[in-house]
Design a protein around this nucleic acid. Sequence first.
RNA 1: GGCGAGGUAGCAAAGUGGUAAUGCACUGGUCUGCAAAACCGGUAUGCGCGGGUUCAAUUCCCGCCCUCGCCUCCA
Length: 467
Amino acid sequence: MPAALKLHDTLTRTDREVTPLDGKTLRFYCCGPTVYGPAHIGNFRTFVAQDVMRRVVEASGTATLHVRNITDVDDKTIRDSQKAAQTLLDFTQCWTQKFHTDCAALSLLPPHIEPSAVAHISQQVAMIEKLIAGGHAYAAADGSVYFRVSSFKDYGRLSHLEDRELRLGASEAASATDSDEYTKDSLTDFALWKARKPEDGENFWPSPWGEGRPGWHLECSAMILEYLGEDFDLHSGGVDLIFPHHENEIAQSCCSTHGKFAHHWMHVAHLMVDGGKMSKSIGNLYTLEDLAKRGYSAAEVRYVLISGHYRAPLNFTMHSLDSARQALQKLAKADKALERGTAPLPASPGPFAEAWETLLNDLNVPGAIGSIFGVLNKLKPAALSAEEATATRNGLHFMLQALGLTLPAIADEAAADVPADIQALAQQRWDAKQAKDWAAADILRKQLEAAGWLIKDSKEGFTIIPK
RNA sequence: GGCGAGGUAGCAAAGUGGUAAUGCACUGGUCUGCAAAACCGGUAUGCGCGGGUUCAAUUCCCGCCCUCGCCUCCA
């Protein structure tokens, strides 16, 4: 098996090999969804990219420990659960379930551990206590606790915002009017614990500083410490999380433990729709369900989501889904043509070595897919020996497994039950054709087409396939 | 304003200091009564714009334009 995956690291801005600290298992953390509604395809781009990363690492022979959290307490989950007249728990469990359904449809490998924020309140409180003891945090008069950014000299390293003070001058006027802000010592400080407010309803927990709930950034730091420890291999999320979320995680964790926190940072670029950003108001924010209504499968969505390099913005269009459908069909047909008896489990890229190398180079999925097609296009399946065909098919399956692609049924074979009237019309057409009554045959074919069925003729007869 | 990512054929998207993968779409041929499918081909003298370095630049350097993201709780 070729060498390890080389992956771009946001912190050092270099491509670095991904090798486990313990030499055996790559332990990594992904920021998960906030469960207050269905995730959209932009969210899923990030999760799919992370999934490919994990699959490639595993395909290269390294085990993984994948931790991804569920954010089930924040302003939005509280607000929308109240709107829905549900308890926070019922509300977030419902959306968590929906998330899992979508993930499975997209062939995302489930994380080994999926901790929820509300299930780890005590760990978060403990971390705050450590931070206060170390002089990195302070309780405000209202019972909120804030992280003192000035106490951590490395703050801003990940996002390269070391000169943020200049910027703060400009935004100070706006922030000063926000009633939430005036209890903080500095505008840059962020909340670790938020004091209970009337609008929180029943959603509060006890703490040494009074009733309240944890701050968003803290959740991840506490759960990472619990499951991955003070040092772990890799941390990933969307680019928008670099600042402030990941910056704050680093501050909290490094100031409350002796570890270095994440040793590698992977960030996934955003998905755009029709050349612009996604937004609810424009109405171009799609969920899997939206696309299913338009007849597109999750597998087709996955293909589109990985069809651009994860670090470059990707433009999503309906046409790209059509394109994905055809590409998957082409792969399925190629796979079928290579079928000879039983194929052993895929174990190596075989003739697709170049594609595999491309994938190991910072997860160049589009390059790898291009290379796969390149090999398939040159292939003459009929000329291959059974052994060669099997080896090629194994290699193809190895690559598909690494990319998480499942092949669709080939259109011909997918033929559903043909209604009797359609069958009869098709037979009529065949008879007309045999009688060389081309005009009648063509009219009948058009009728069938209008009804949604295509006819494929061969010497012996015809087949009917859904359009 | 600061920081970051990107601008490659109709659409999407790789890549490289020596003259542009791949998928879709389009198109020519074989086949077919005609189609469909399949198979064999074709389609960017050009890689945002203007300079520079070089024997040679889409690829390196400088400037500019445009798009997208972040700038305190958005993947």
